[in-house]
């Protein structure tokens, strides 16, 4: 895979966490997420412990906490749901600041928020400290199907190319007075997507021919 196709979340660095083998980080992340999901949600102190472990890992990685915090917005739609749970959940009610809330709902909301947030933070830390190429090599070492890893590799390699192409198409639309977000202009937007599909598919065909001409037989060179 060519260089210069780092993904948006990666934070360049040379900490022990950056240098650690990707397959160990993957196993560690999966183990951590599973343990967090399995932990009963009433064990509040244990969750504080998990958070402390993650914060120590963040400190070791020397990724600025604000860098991670800003990227935690992916969680927002889910936070909205968790906040709604105490209002709609069943069970005995308690009064909090004049609002009648469900007691098991409050505990459930805490569990959802705590587990979700820990999972997002841990995943972000993996993404920030691992280059995509290393991640793919790690997946291969963990015996993920070779074809699947190849497909992931091509997707990551051409992600910026395809999204960049879409971005230029959207700029072209706007400069002609078309608002891609307005339902009135959906037909134009969807035709743009149709063109993007044809272009992506044809690019795939060209890439395949280029690979064949370089001796591709179904396996990637090491």
């Amino acid at each position: 895979m060519g260089s210069g196709h780092g993904h948006r979340l990666h934070y360049h660095g040379h900490s022990p966490l950056h240098r650690a083998p990707a397959h160990l980080k993957l196993v560690g992340l999966l183990g951590f997420a599973l343990v967090v999901v399995l932990t009963p949600r009433e064990w509040y102190a244990v969750y504080a412990g998990y958070l402390a472990v993650l914060l120590v890992a963040v400190r070791i990685s020397r990724v600025p906490p604000t860098y991670l915090l800003k990227r935690m917005v992916v969680e927002v739609p889910f936070v909205v749901f968790a906040v709604l749970v105490p209002f709609v959940a069943t069970g005995p009610r308690v009064d909090v600041l004049g609002l009648s809330l469900s007691e098991p709902g409050l505990v459930a909301a805490f569990g959802l928020l705590a587990k979700g947030t820990l999972g997002v933070l841990a995943s972000l830390l993996l993404a920030a400290t691992t280059e995509p190429a290393d991640l793919l090599a790690g997946l291969e070492r963990l015996h993920a199907p070779e074809l699947l890893v190849q497909i992931m590799g091509f997707m990551i390699r051409y992600l910026d190319v395809v999204t960049g192409e879409l971005g230029r198409m959207l700029v072209a639309m706007r400069s002609r007075g078309v608002d891609p977000r307005s339902p009135r202009h959906w037909p134009v937007l969807a035709r743009t997507l149709g063109a993007l599909f044809v272009r992506s598919f044809e690019r795939g065909e060209r890439v395949h021919l280029a690979m064949l001409s370089r001796g591709y037989t179904g396996r990637m060179p090491r």
Binding site: F154, V162, S200, G204
Partner: peptide
């Protein structure tokens, strides 16, 4: 052609 084409289509779906 699976690997390059599925990869490119995946990038398209993402976009």
């Amino acid at each position: 052609r699976t690997a390059p084409l599925a990869g490119l289509v995946a990038a398209f779906v993402f976009a």
